[in-house]
């Protein structure tokens, strides 16, 4: 009996000792982003010591799924996050008190060109209405690419309900397209080039190019409470992001190195695609288009006021 109790006691002691290590290092600002190039300005600012130069201690936390970012901000696991416009607006619409504090990435002709609906072999798409009745994989339902594609379908006079949408994450796209599990996927570079080179299909539509928008993809957001208490830190954060955005947009080498370091993607793969354009300023009116599109797709319940969503 004593032996058994001793065994339990040892295992408790072992587990208990590690608890103390977790509570440390709270002074740093944690910035949470998904493994894409959208938060490149923060990645570069960490790597090039730009945050430090402005007197900020910043650490980046990789987040698996973008829609977890609002909850992570509210729990104070991260103080600043990089949600997509759709995730941010849905969270605010749902009652979470978040506020956008700086711009990260925006759509532009280059990034729009990277976005496609990639169609598997054996399926021909000549015009938008050919998508009717097809099974289309989106990396997240009601997420960025899905919302854009639905907007494009509506503009082209196709009923989005005639398309069967399923969720397919980026890394599984090529295998699912290959096996014929879906007819098309809504994807972006470098996946388009990889799938094209592997002979798995062809580009069915360049819907983002046709929409030709310049609205924000991802921006930096925080809880209003944290933002109110940390006005000085936010000023420094904005200055640092403005400085590193220059590097992201003009120095592919440095930007690729930082992106590869944070996302753990092989550097050759990162270099294949230019990072999405970094724009550090964010104006309330830039959220207007998203609010309108999402409201028309019945994704928002309340009437959101853009002026209240962006910190002055």
């Amino acid at each position: 009996m004593k032996k058994i109790i001793a065994t339990f006691a040892v295992s408790f002691a072992l587990t208990g000792s590690a608890l103390t290590t977790t509570a440390l290092a709270q002074a740093k600002i944690q910035v949470g982003c998904t493994a894409t190039s959208d938060c490149a300005s923060a990645m570069v600012a960490v790597d090039e010591g730009i945050f430090k130069k402005h007197g900020l201690e910043v650490e980046m936390t990789p987040i698996g799924i973008n829609s977890n970012i609002p909850a992570a901000i509210l729990s104070n696991s991260i103080q600043i996050g990089g949600p997509t416009s759709t995730v941010f607006l849905q969270a605010v619409d749902g009652g979470l008190d978040l506020v956008a504090i700086a711009g990260a990435s925006v759509m532009n002709p280059v990034s729009n060109g990277n976005i496609t609906a990639f169609v598997r072999n054996g399926i021909t798409i000549k015009e938008p209405k050919d998508f009717a009745g097809k099974k289309v994989g989106a990396p997240g339902l009601n997420a960025f690419l899905h919302v854009l594609f639905v907007k494009w379908l509506v503009e082209k006079g196709v009923d989005p309900k005639s398309v069967n949408f399923v969720e397919v994450t980026f890394p599984t796209m090529s295998d699912i397209i290959k096996s014929g599990g879906v007819d098309a996927v809504l994807t972006a570079e470098p996946f388009v080039t990889r799938m094209t080179n592997a002979g798995l299909g062809s580009v069915g539509a360049r819907y983002a190019v046709e929409l030709a928008r310049t609205d924000p993809i991802i921006f930096y957001a925080a809880s209003r409470e944290w933002a109110d208490k940390n006005a000085v830190a936010i000023k420094k954060f904005r200055d640092a992001i403005a400085e590193s955005a220059e590097i992201v947009n003009n120095d592919r080498e440095k930007a690729s190195a930082s992106i590869s370091k944070f996302t753990k993607q092989p550097i050759e793969l990162v270099k294949m695609t230019p990072p999405n354009r970094s724009v550090p300023e964010l104006k309330p009116e830039q959220l207007g288009w998203w609010i309108e599109v999402m409201s028309s797709q019945k994704m928002l319940q309340s009437k959101l006021e853009p002026n209240k969503l962006v910190l002055k």
Binding site: T34, P171, L269
Partner: peptide, 13 residues
């Protein structure tokens, strides 16, 4: 588990 996810997103099968 996070290691698996990060490796998957980094396309490191």
């Amino acid at each position: 588990g996070a290691g698996i996810m990060l490796a998957q997103q980094a396309l490191r099968a």
